[in-house]
Nucleic acid binder design. Structure first.
Lengths: 228, 228
DNA sequence: CATGGACGGATTGTATCCAATTCTTGCGGG
DNA sequence: CCCGCAAGAATTGGATACAATCCGTCCATG
């Protein structure tokens, strides 16, 4: 059998994980030797994974300087969410008429999975299930490139997403909104779904924006080099 | 001075060029050793460039099999153009109010540059100038991520674009449409620009679609391996 | 004749080594 | 004290060498 994955793919997953969980925070330089050692591979597959994350917009790359986790300004964040609004609306409008009973069941189960994770306070599991919940809807549009673009936009803010779900109140509001969305889906009420989704999104952008401009930025993070 | 570019960037440019000009056609496998030799580098920087093109959607990658130039189905093509319509409309609506006199002059000059290339029958120069013309507008929206997504969508069809401009009639229609768009820009008539742009786009999708389903596909191309 | 399995060449994947660039540090001069 | 600047250290960029995988072929077997 050939279920074995290549080292570059394994490293890519671990990098995503580390960005999502904040092990690698905004502004950090990704020193290749250290990371390669940490992941137990050589620098070659690591560099290919870094290149992927760069072209997805999660990292920035300066030749001969290295890769850094992107730091988003408030404007950057607004742009990402503006583009998400545009594309997610389109995805939902294409998806809802195409949903079959099986899809609805899957989506409902994912909503429950999120709720369970929220109750448990398992932030990691919650972000994971949350992404599957939303993309179950987007993917139903049957437009792979659209899904791909949306994945990029979601990942662009992964470095900040972890912070968001730290707040218990955020977690509970989210599950309530999801339940509303599932009901609207079953009713095939496209306009209502889009409206709920827009509202849902603007709540999270507001929350992340608040986290973005704190009085006191986390002072622990070390920034080995400043960028030009 | 440090104006020198890295090998991976140079290779990336040459790969884009070769895809755009059809040296590398849809379905071709990119054999690393041959390409590396052709470009005069080792496989390491080449692979990083391939990784970039993969995550942009111009190549597909099968682990342990290699990279192949994507082959677009009619549905794929329609999806790309549908997404372009969505995002380009948004870009234009944001851009037009922001254009200053300098931008308008630049855009006009680019339109003339395209026309000159069309007259000369210089397909390569025409596609190049055409891209700069359109992105001069999109970029004026001041949304770098939007520009980036659009660049990806444009490049996704690069492998087919060269064919389009082969037709002399296509080339002439295009320049006429550009002139109309420039006039509408000067008048700040947003709705008209968007309408013209949509029409412009649907002409090219129709033409490429026709090229995509020919009675006789090009039989010369060798396909070393078939994909799963 | 069809099928399956082992061998060998071709291609990709990874590690290691060296070169090139950038960053840091410390020193001297103003 | 501050700036410029020159070595040395740290880091990235690239080339080569080797390992792993895949694919086509050929032969044995039923």
């Amino acid at each position: 059998m050939s279920a074995r994955t290549t080292a570059q793919d394994a490293v890519l997953s671990r990098l995503r994980e580390d960005i999502l969980t904040g092990v690698l925070g905004p502004g950090d330089q990704l020193v290749q030797e250290s990371l390669a050692e940490r992941y137990g591979v050589s620098r070659v597959p690591l560099r290919e994974a870094l290149k992927t994350l760069e072209s997805e917009g999660q990292l920035v790359y300066y030749p001969h300087r290295g890769y850094f986790v992107v730091e988003l300004s408030t404007d950057d964040l607004r742009e990402v969410y503006h583009l998400r609004a545009l594309l997610e609306d389109a995805a939902l409008r294409a998806a809802v008429p195409a949903l079959d009973e099986r899809d609805l069941i899957d989506i409902s189960e994912l909503a429950e999975e999120i709720e369970q994770a929220a109750v448990d306070g398992d932030v990691r599991a919650m972000t994971e299930a949350n992404r599957r919940f939303h993309f179950a809807m987007y993917d139903a549009a049957g437009m792979p490139r659209l899904s791909r673009l949306l994945r990029q936009l979601w990942e662009a803010t992964d470095a900040y997403r972890a912070l968001y779900y730290q707040g218990e109140d955020n977690r509970h509001r989210v599950t309530g909104e999801h339940a509303q969305m599932v009901r609207a889906l079953r009713a095939r009420d496209v306009d209502r779904i889009v409206a709920l989704h827009d509202e849902h999104r603007s709540h999270s952008v507001a929350a992340v924006e608040a986290l973005l401009n704190p009085r006191s930025r986390n002072p622990h993070r070390s920034h080995p080099r400043e960028k030009p």
